[in-house]
Nucleic acid binder design. Structure first.
Lengths: 214, 214
DNA sequence: TGATGTGAAGCGGTTCACAGCC
DNA sequence: GGCTGTGAACCGCTTCACATCA
């Protein structure tokens, strides 16, 4: 085990490993070697071992890893053993779709608020999630102990929204607006840029040989 | 100019550069140096020059790049000078949100079909986009000349859907299902994994110092 | 014996620094 | 003089290969 800075590449893979382990656990597998895990899910065994070794010695030589044990370790490492409150800013199509998406629940994320500035939307609900006035953002964040913000507003408004999010003390942001956002280094902003993803795909459409899933 | 394999990192940045140039062009800027472009949009000037140099010599020494000229070059390189037909498989919340999203139009993508297997959805429309029976997938792909597929079905169905997509001859896929998909190397699959993105953010919530937008 | 944990090598991408050209 | 295009240096991540240990 090392004391190094962990890259986002590693943490993303931990999330993938966790998903694999959940699948294995559900189908009754008790132990698995890095080799077998790699073969089953198209990963690299050395990378699995190295990623895990950043955080401890979870394996048993000659045996492999205990599936349920490792799963719990990963959940703890990723901070998924505690619930995290999430808000979504921008109650458009994408924002409401995400608010309604059940897939986050098993990771212990719960969407507790939507925000918008459109009077006609404020006060309504999407599923159990109420749409609040963005003017009340700070208050609701404090009240609900929101830790993560998802930004689904138009590009032109995104930086302004992010500034407000940072001012409210939120340290983790998932941004869907197709712009590069600037924030203090103490705030982790991850941008999911669908336009860039598609445009990048478009390039490879015209190439003789293509790559595969990454 | 080199003849090398272009990485997805490069093509993604080209998409970003294009967006920057469109903004500059709209505000009347005629020429720009890589240095200034980098400063304005938080990029790296050497990287801009190197990325562009893979495709030609677009700049003028002592001057910089002609904004409109470079923009058109990038549009052509990314294949955005021609329209690309897109279909979305899975007419749930996310699929319909994407079908209704206008942001792709200016990149010359047009969503021409949604697919589902749910009888109650088939035949309906989201905006101008009709929901078809997935059983008719091959026929509609051929008829509409669809080149790109977006997968927004549940995880358990995604691989099966991808296999069908590949069989229909589609070479570019954007996948939102939280699973690693396996496809032939001639097909480019890009996965946008929201669960992994959030779980990765969750990790950084508990860390003393965090990174910034990447 | 068999699989982990890990130093070392390898590789790809980024940044530097400057020759070359407008 | 100023900025591009690019070889070289650098850096970080991935993969290899093996000493180590249950």
């Amino acid at each position: 085990m090392k004391v190094e800075k962990i890259s986002e590449l590693t943490t993303s893979r931990l999330s993938v490993y966790l998903r694999c382990l959940e699948e294995l656990s559900a189908s009754g597998v008790r132990t698995i070697s890095s080799e077998e895990l790699a073969r089953k899910f198209r990963l690299n065994s050395a990378q699995i071992r190295k990623d895990l070794a950043y955080f401890g010695e979870f394996g048993v030589r000659g045996v492999g890893y205990y599936v349920d044990d490792l799963r719990e370790h990963l959940r703890r490492i990723l901070g998924l053993d505690k619930e995290h409150k999430v808000c979504i800013i921008g109650a458009g199509r994408l924002g409401t779709a995400l608010a309604d998406y059940n897939g986050f629940k098993k990771s212990n994320f719960s969407v507790v608020a939507l925000f918008d500035i459109d009077e006609s939307k404020i006060g309504k609900s999407i599923g159990n999630v109420k749409i609040y006035n963005f003017a009340d953002f700070h208050k609701i964040v404090r009240l609900e102990k929101i830790e993560i913000a998802v930004i689904t507003v138009p590009a032109y408004a995104a930086q302004q929204v992010l500034d407000e999010v940072v001012r409210a003390g939120i340290k983790a942001v998932l941004n869907f607006a197709p712009v590069t956002l600037i924030a203090d280094a103490s705030v982790k902003v991850k941008t999911v840029d669908l336009t860039t993803s598609l445009e990048s795909l478009s390039y490879f459409l015209n190439q003789p040989v293509n790559g595969r899933d990454e």
